[in-house]
């Protein structure tokens, strides 16, 4: 464990807490893409199958349970909670995310570290996580005004993988046989997708103005 990875995990956790706070405090999920939340639930379920087979550390196991439980709770809330689901922007959240799932599964079958069930699913989860934010970014552009909590949620979500890139650079230089090119390439793509959001987020922060994404 190194500081970059710890900061990455904490940033990721903060993003989830911000989203839970927004939904719980405002009883609303306006501006949040249910499709992105479903993709994240799929990412965690596909990646953390080793939760019961490979014990790495208490921290690792606890965080896996927290990520799986929180992502499923958010999807449940947005689909079933009688008050929250009424504020879901169903007509704006129209990204065909099943294509993302199919493309990532196809890519995972072609490119993975070892052609085994767990490795294919792990690669699938890495590829899917890289593109899972797309429905959310499309929804933000369509819904125009972005409320503060939603903006902060997306910002922390983007920042977490940027910390992971620093972690991979650090591990590359400090560990002998450290090869995670699947994660590195996907992580770079994932963080690059946030580039324009980060730009507009910084502008709104600098001008102390409302976060506006160009349509």
């Amino acid at each position: 464990m190194n500081i970059f990875r710890f900061l990455g995990d904490m940033t990721h956790l903060i993003s989830i807490l911000i989203l839970l706070l927004k939904i719980y405090a405002t009883k609303s999920c306006s501006g949040i893409s249910l499709k992105t939340q479903e993709l994240y639930a799929l990412v965690f379920l596909a990646r953390y199958l080793d939760l019961f087979t490979d014990f790495i550390s208490v921290y690792n196991s606890v965080m896996k349970v927290v990520f799986i439980a929180s992502s499923l709770a958010i999807v449940w809330c947005m689909r079933r909670h009688r008050v929250v689901r009424r504020s879901y922007d169903k007509e704006l959240d129209t990204f065909r995310h099943y294509f993302l799932v199919a493309a990532c599964l196809a890519l995972a079958l072609l490119v993975q570290e070892k052609f085994t069930f767990l490795e294919v699913l792990w690669a699938f989860s890495i590829y899917l996580e890289a593109v899972a934010i797309l429905p959310q970014l499309v929804l933000l552009q369509r819904s125009g005004n972005v409320d503060n909590l939603t903006g902060q949620y997306v910002f922390f979500l983007g920042a977490y993988r940027a910390f992971y890139i620093l972690n991979w650079i650090y591990r590359y230089f400090t560990e002998t046989h450290f090869s995670r090119w699947i994660s590195c390439v996907s992580g770079l793509v994932q963080t690059a997708l946030y580039a324009d959001f980060f730009y507009y987020y910084f502008i709104s922060w600098k001008n102390n103005s409302k976060l506006q994404l160009p349509a």
Partner: peptide, 10 residues
């Protein structure tokens, strides 16, 4: 050895 190096991250 390289294997656990790739799966110890979240």
């Amino acid at each position: 050895a390289s294997n656990e190096g790739t799966k110890d991250e979240l």
